[in-house]
Write a protein that binds this DNA or RNA. Structure first.
Lengths: 260, 260
DNA sequence: TCGATTGTCTCGCATTGTGCAACTGTCTCA
DNA sequence: TGAGACAGTTGCACAATGCGAGACAATCGA
């Protein structure tokens, strides 16, 4: 019974790891010394790694380094952990600006999941929903996600019976469909007392570097004071501005070509 | 003349890429279907990738996913691009809080490089130094970096002739050495008119997940108004708080165990 | 219970990965 | 200027290794 590990593959990962420890690049000779393999083996391994897209030649065409496009597959800026980390400072800024709670949520098939929230030190405040999931039609980010889907996907969701949470929950499919145009024109989505009595919320979309809607930033507060009379337009402007800054931040976080 | 590429290594990278595209994990069966390779080949390749540390089994012990420790080598949270992206929101927050310009800088051997800056809309403001390099002893972040080095490294730097930029530049080695204690006790480093006439600055350290000093966050402003009389203590508290938040943010950004 | 599916392991063949050595190009020094 | 050292690539031939087929065990659903 022989070892089931593939020797040449083990060697490749070892070399890949060595290369990864030298972001500015490393020469074939140094790889040969560090790995202890024969130089022609190293040369051929590196050639294979280059042609496979894992490694590229640095600017001097001598040293080699990890190809950023390779690492982009493992550290997508839109995975949940990175989203939370990236957007959290904006939640704090926005919460300070509007004086209400702010939240970050992501679409999960037919639900919304809240993955982060910031609440200011108000005497009367909304509870923390981090980790909770809700149906799309009952919360502001959910209606936003729905509005950005294809008509087929919308019809599929609206065909099933929709739960009613309060007297104000909109469950009539055509009424919901009719709200999509306003959502697209305004760029935001509002709910008032539709999910829970006494809570109003507005959400705006966050796009990733491929212009995919990956999350929503939201403001929520008690309906008796949010939105303040006559303030809807300025709140829309504010939250759209923040959503756009979040989108730009995700784009900045995407790995870039770095020459040395 | 045969192809110089190593077939089994090409296959390994192909499988690694497929696995990387499924952060929640992917089964051997699906890898077999997507790659077109024989199932026993896939099984053996995956075993090799697991034992090499590139891949790990997900929580269900069936699916496999990229091991976060593997990706940590390629996307270190302390590389310059990530630093800028990560800390920028804090620069904006801090600039708003103190009403002056804020900057991010990193140590480069015997110099400081400014890699980002945020300036508020003041009538009188400091210029943008992004991209510029300065000697360690003449700027607030530089004295901070120096204070955190070993005594041998400090002696080495202070042994060379130190350039004087203004009448206020401190170039006497013992005077500089004597400032390190205060820097350590206060946790911040101040300069006043030492680099350029009319500019004062304070800097605080940013540590990475291994508690290595990797950058400094700074506030600078025109000396006639910064620091305002009697405000040094509150500014120290403010910038230390921000530096600590930056440090925590870097730690959060470090890849973590993510089970599904 | 049976059949389908999944993943691991053994086996033996022949292809493939390897180290040796030659070669080319570049750089340094006498 | 020429010689030598060094770095990296390439051809060659051997045998070790990677491979696919098939067997097997475990799990799940009808």
């Amino acid at each position: 019974m022989r070892d089931n590990r593939i020797q040449s593959v083990s060697r490749a990962i070892e070399l890949l790891t060595l290369i990864g420890e030298h972001p500015a690049g490393i020469s074939i000779g140094n790889l040969t010394r560090l790995s202890g393999l024969h130089k022609s083996t190293v040369s051929r391994q590196v050639l294979t790694l280059i042609e496979s897209g894992a490694v590229r030649r640095a600017a001097d065409q001598i040293r080699v380094q990890i190809d950023p496009r390779f690492t982009q597959r493992f550290f997508a800026p839109t995975n949940t952990q990175t989203l939370i980390t990236t957007i959290r400072p904006f939640l704090e800024l926005l919460s300070r600006d509007c004086g209400e709670a702010t939240g970050l949520s992501i679409p999960e098939v037919d639900q919304v999941r809240y993955i982060d929230q910031v609440s200011p030190d108000n005497a009367v405040r909304v509870r923390d929903w981090t980790g909770a999931r809700f149906t799309l039609h009952s919360v502001a980010p959910g209606k936003l996600f729905l509005a950005h889907r294809s008509k087929e996907e919308q019809d599929h969701y609206l065909r099933q019976p929709l739960a009613r949470y309060t007297d104000n929950t909109v469950v009539e499919p055509n009424a919901i469909r009719n709200s999509f145009r306003a959502i697209h024109m305004e760029g935001v989505s509002w709910i008032t007392d539709e999910f829970t009595e006494g809570i109003s919320a507005v959400a705006a979309p966050i796009f990733d570097q491929q212009d995919t809607l990956v999350a929503a930033i939201a403001i929520f507060g008690p309906s008796f004071r949010f939105p303040a009379p006559g303030s809807i337009e300025s709140i829309n402007t504010l939250i759209r501005d923040y959503a756009e800054r979040c989108s730009k931040q995700l784009q900045r976080l995407a790995p870039k070509e770095t020459n040395t």
